[in-house]
Design a protein around this nucleic acid. Structure first.
Lengths: 228, 228
DNA sequence: CTAGTTCTCGTACCATGTACGAGAATAGGG
DNA sequence: CCCTATTCTCGTACATGGTACGAGAACTAG
């Protein structure tokens, strides 16, 4: 899977013309993953959604994993990159918020991203944009790249967590019982006295779960305040 | 997969005694994953390593995914939790370094962790320890939990990236050609002029890759400096 | 129209998770 | 000491998924 063959689409010249484009294949796959999750993203399923035979996909993509990489870069290309304003902290926060929206729209993205270093054109574009945003910070180039990695990693990590929470609920048929079981388990664990500080924290916080948006903003502020 | 049945091992009373313990099964699975990667972690492979029939594993574990959760919590239990010194920033940094070592020793961990909210006893213990470490910071309880999530997320994200880099090299037979292809691709992409800031950054940094440990320390310092 | 080229996709194979059930091993009661 | 209930063992079998292969279809250049 060298990057050169992965990211360049072969141009058609002679022979039978392809019935689809690689973009269409990737877009269809993204649709499937959005609607039914990563586990439903099988070659057969994508082919059906595209209205083609399963093996035809291999004309556009060398293997399933390559399709995933293309999907990742494709959706990253959806991210809006607003022009830098000069306030790099605000710009970086806006960048992070856009990323979070992206990942919320494509909940499979954080998982797909894990353990992968994708360097597609759109990923490079996003990186380039972040570097531009960070120009006024006076940070050296390498530190800017690291700041980008830090923010992106935080967003992926955090949204991945948010999504996992949602999915755990959505996967079960008896939500009430699931929540109850969870609460019972935690109460028993904490009640055992093995986690005194956790017990203290839970007692102090009360039971109401924190607002997701506010939590993200709070943590994002921490990340950004550490930079520069 | 409710937590109550996942984390509590059934005690044996009547009937044929089990030939193994759940811990042994999990430890064997960890060994397989360490040595051959997550993709080699099949029920058959683990059973072979354990010297049992494949289906016998299901006596100890309800499904493959449950085995993975147990593995995660088991290796998290390996982490050394040094007593807090009062210098919470230093303690938190030490915590992060331990986590990084852990994940380097079990390179499958960052990937396995993605999109999962595991709350096993050892995970809770680590969380409890982090809360204790953060006590002198004066942060409110909720903020302490978020700080823990932030640091853990950063380490997982970063090590996941480090590991991906390693694996990309290790997976190919012709390393030289792979590196060359990568370099060619990047040079072509950046040379196209589509990524001016990236081009500038690469020119400024030179070609020598930064030291992995130093990079981690630098980024960790950023994360921690943002807290409190 | 022909030769060369490229795409299409049915068939087939292998790997994997796991349901099922027959048989084996044990503990406690008679 | 045997009998019965109970629990573990694991061979067999099936469904699902990635993908190699190759015959045929559809096109272009000459």
């Amino acid at each position: 899977m060298d990057p050169e063959t992965l990211w360049s689409e072969r141009r058609h010249h002679r022979g039978r013309p392809p019935a689809h484009t690689r973009e269409a294949v990737v877009a269809t796959a993204v649709g499937v993953a959005d609607a039914e999750g990563l586990s439903a993203l099988t070659m057969r399923r994508v082919a059906t959604a595209l209205g083609s035979g399963t093996m035809s996909l291999y004309t556009y993509v060398s293997e399933r994993d390559a399709l995933l990489e293309l999907m990742i870069d494709a959706v990253i290309g959806e991210q809006r990159l607003s022009a830098p304003t000069g306030d790099w902290r605000a710009d970086l926060a806006a960048f992070a918020r856009e990323q979070r929206m992206l990942m919320t729209r494509h909940p499979w993205l954080p998982v797909a991203l894990a353990g992968r270093r994708t360097l597609g054109p759109n990923t490079l574009k996003a990186l380039d944009h972040a570097l531009a945003v960070l120009e006024p910070s006076g940070m050296p180039p390498r530190a800017r790249t690291e700041a980008f990695a830090l923010v992106s990693g935080f967003v992926a990590s955090h949204v991945g967590y948010e999504v996992a929470q949602q999915r755990a609920l959505g996967r079960t048929d008896d939500v009430r019982e699931f929540v109850a079981s969870n609460a019972r388990y935690l109460a028993a664990a904490v009640g055992s006295g093995a986690y005194p500080h956790l017990a203290e924290a839970m007692a102090a916080d009360g039971a109401e779960p924190p607002d997701a948006d506010e939590t993200f903003e709070r943590m994002l502020a921490l990340v950004i305040s550490g930079l520069g």
